[in-house]
Simulated assay, not measured.
Amino acid sequence: MSFNSPNEQKWAERWDQLFDVLSAEPRREIIISLRDAPPDQRVPLPDAAESPNQSMDSETLAIKLRHHHLPKLADVGYVHWESEPFCAQRGPNFAEAEFIVEKVFESIEEIPDSLLKNCRVLGELGADD
């Protein structure tokens, strides 16, 4: 791929970062939890990162959040987080991640079955419609 300007490269990098950040379920769950909360509200962790698709105890999830998932979300400005109390809130670039999650939810009926099979989060959402 050839870029004509540094701005084009930054644009492509933003999209790459967005999909990289959304590639892990705990990070998607945090974005969904914040999307469902009022804009200025914090969500409790690790609860906001838990998913019916995961079989991880809360303590292990909290460790993974602190050392991997939350720094990755914070580095691109999707969330701000604190250790005490352990919580997250929307960051200045939250709308980027929220946009993708919204489009997936709006398109639930168009998602191929192979992506819905065994996904409890999207399966429940599709059943609600």
Rank of each mutant, 00 (worst) to 15 (best):
M1A: 15
S2Y: 14
S5C: 04
S5R: 02
P6I: 06
N7C: 14
K10W: 14
A12M: 13
E13G: 13
W15F: 15
L18C: 14
L18H: 09
F19H: 09
V21H: 08
L22K: 02
S23H: 10
A24Q: 07
E25Y: 00
E25Q: 12
R28F: 06
E29L: 09
I31S: 09
I32N: 11
I32A: 05
S33M: 00
S33T: 00
L34R: 09
L34F: 04
D36H: 03
A37Y: 07
P38R: 02
D40N: 08
R42S: 03
V43E: 00
P44S: 01
D47G: 04
A48Q: 03
A49G: 01
S51H: 01
M56Q: 14
D57Y: 05
S58F: 08
S58P: 13
E59T: 13
A62D: 00
R66G: 06
H69Y: 01
K72P: 09
D75R: 14
D75T: 07
Y78L: 04
V79N: 02
H80D: 13
H80P: 06
E82K: 14
E84Q: 12
A88V: 08
A88S: 11
Q89Y: 01
G91I: 02
G91K: 07
P92I: 06
A97R: 01
A97P: 03
F99C: 10
V104N: 06
V104P: 05
F105L: 08
E106T: 07
I108A: 05
I111G: 04
P112R: 08
P112G: 11
D113A: 12
D113E: 15
S114M: 14
L116A: 06
K117I: 05
K117W: 09
N118P: 04
N118L: 12
N118H: 09
C119A: 09
C119I: 11
C119T: 10
R120Y: 11
V121K: 03
L122C: 05
L122N: 00
L122W: 03
G123P: 05
G123Y: 00
E124H: 11
L125I: 11
L125S: 13
D128R: 14
